[in-house]
Design a protein around this nucleic acid. Structure first.
Lengths: 253, 253
DNA sequence: CGTTCTTGTCCATATTATGGACAGAAGCAG
DNA sequence: CTGCTTCTGTCCATAATATGGACAAGAACG
């Protein structure tokens, strides 16, 4: 049912946009877009430059990198802000942040990516602030991504991981490792990474499902590893799991 | 130099998105998109449904209308928030709002549209709140649009107004009327509408130019007409003009 | 129960997007 | 300087893609 045809160019343009979005403000060089999308260079070049003319993409004068343009947030203003999820999650994030004291993230799934949409800084003096709101990563490379994959049907998770294969090497991981972590997360009931994307950090993530059973988001605690021994890991996971269920209720009702 | 070819479909998809954006949360029926874009119905239908599959557009179950989807704000997160302009304008808006007491709007130009990006409610008990952040109109139908057109080179303004012709009738105006108001605004030094989009209101707008002389935004005061007699109009215009120059400095430096 | 509005689908056609091949620019090593 | 590698940009014959006329069916209205 999915593949409606007659719009290859539009789909490709969107694929390019998603890669550019992963580059945030700094953007992405053309060659990297070519590599990660698998399109040919003339095609990417054409798409990107048309999007520049349309104001959807910008090019940084100094670096030559391509980035999401002004007009995207302008289009986004058409939607109500803040989103349903952000409103529903707000009280839980506040409670959990107060109870745990380490940095808390809310991450959504968008296509084959995870996207950080909220961050709460805790009271403990050492905070892991590497991930900012807007950070976008291939599903699978962060503990949030692993949690979200773990909450999906195994075949779908495998499909996404396979689709992201080309992008994994930039994060020094691969399909097999990711699938291993996903399996582990299914057993545990939550996602976990002993070695976070930043050296010396550890992360714990619970998934949040929509009423129809699809995982839509993950709630993550990141801290320096020594703060998250086995005992505290258990405590933190319990808080996250409890709040995740509350958020699910808030979305559903 | 402008028209790079080989991406008709992408340009068309973006034209559709801009129309959908004008529909805000409620969205726009397909037939209206067809009318205002001038594309054929099969083409619009195909584009819109591909965009739905991609998560860029949503369809409201009850009404069948099409609206900007979840994924647009997600892509927008790639950019730093708030924007340069919003930061630069913030102190001026605060000062002007305090000094004037009526509702104040900051409106940018985006393509052939005006887009309200900030609104400040004043202290006076009767406020004109019809325009919300995110409201999008064809350039020319609001006093902000007239001001922005007045700040551009006349031929370019005429071109934009001509391009918007099809959309004017929905706002009960036409090309000749708009061009007349633009000429009047050039003489006055600011845009003005005795009859606002809402009955009984009056609006005054000053333009804000980027360092290269292109108008990028407008600052508008809207109030019930009786609040804006000739004398007060003069006062308000002076405040707006002063603050507009300050914002231009802040953008330039 | 015709009239007019809407949305959705088909498919032959030609317009459009594609990508191989070529080329220049910038960085680096010897 | 020259050769090597990496990047970005352009051309154009070709194949594949997007197009839109025609048809259809549902919804709202009088």
């Amino acid at each position: 049912m999915e593949p409606r045809q007659g719009a290859q160019a539009i789909r490709r343009a969107l694929a390019v946009l998603r890669i550019l979005a992963a580059g945030r403000e700094d953007g992405v060089p053309l060659a990297e877009v070519v590599r990660t999308t698998g399109l040919t260079r003339p095609t990417v070049h054409r798409i990107v430059h048309v999007l520049i003319e349309e104001g959807i993409v910008e090019r940084h004068a100094r670096t030559g990198r391509y980035a999401i343009g002004n007009q995207v947030p302008e289009l986004a203003l058409a939607r109500p802000r803040p989103s349903r999820l952000l409103m529903a999650a707000n009280p839980s994030l506040q409670r959990a942040s107060a109870a745990i004291g380490d940095t808390l993230f809310l991450t959504v799934r968008t296509g084959n990516d995870t996207l950080c949409v909220d961050r709460r800084i805790g009271v403990y003096p050492i905070q892991v602030l590497s991930i900012e709101v807007g950070a976008r990563r291939p599903l699978g490379v962060s503990s949030a991504g692993v949690a979200i994959l773990a909450a999906m049907a195994a075949p779908e998770a495998r499909k996404i991981v396979a689709a992201n294969e080309k992008r994994f090497e930039a994060y020094r991981t691969d399909v097999a490792t990711v699938l291993g972590e996903v399996t582990a997360a299914r057993r545990l009931g939550y996602g976990m990474r002993e070695i976070g994307l930043v050296q010396g950090t550890k992360s714990i993530s619970t998934w949040i499902k929509t009423p129809d059973g699809q995982p839509a988001a993950a709630m993550t605690v990141s801290a320096v590893r020594t703060r998250l021994g086995p005992r505290r890991e258990q405590e933190v996971a319990e808080i996250l799991l409890r709040e995740a269920r509350i958020i699910e209720q808030a979305i559903g009702g």
